[in-house]
Amino acid sequence: MNNEALILHEQTVHTKTNFGFWLYVMTDCILFASLFATYAALRGNTADGPSGQTLFDLPYVLAETLVLLTSSFTCGLAILATNRQHKTQAISWFAVTMVLGLSFLALEVNEFAHLAQIGAGWQRSGFLSAYFTLVGTHGLHIVVGLVWMTIMLYQLLQRGFTAGVRRRLSLLSIFWHFLDVIWIFIFSIVYLLGVLPS
């Protein structure tokens, strides 16, 4: 295949993959919507146990939120560097994104561990089952994103900016931004509205 045909082929692949991945993100929205709906339905089912009012530490959650938001921003910077094919810059910004992502995860795991320790684990009530599952599923997606980022950093170091690497990095950035979008709703609906008297 000559170079022109190769470029056209790569563009076609990128277009299809980009759209296909977006569709997958849409399905993930529906998944989270189902978990949100369940959380909303079970919010009051505290089974004589603690509710959001007693459990949620808003300053702590604000810190988590700002960390994740910043990581979404640095991911954008990393993509800008990718577009310009500045290898060192791209790797640095992705590394920063990963550190922020790991920090978010650490904060969240710490929060979960604390809740479990004080007897507010996910077995305690319907409310807590729903809370842990909704927030935890988001956390699992973060883990997936971080693993993916690690692999992409490795590929970037080994192969440089091949068409495949750039394509996969653009998908990863969509994924990472999407996770922050979901977090907007978790922050607002679960935490902010959660401390309000119902």
Binding site: I7, E10, L58, L69, F73, G76, I79, L80, T82, N83
Partner: peptide, 28 residues
């Protein structure tokens, strides 16, 4: 670059980031 993979610019990302921080703090 063979083609653009994203329509982003630094100013777009920066403004988006600042607006998001403001909106987050406002709600909080």
């Amino acid at each position: 670059p063979l083609e653009q993979h994203s329509s982003g610019t630094l100013s777009l990302y920066l403004s988006g980031f600042i607006m998001s921080v403001v909106l987050t703090l406002a709600a909080y």
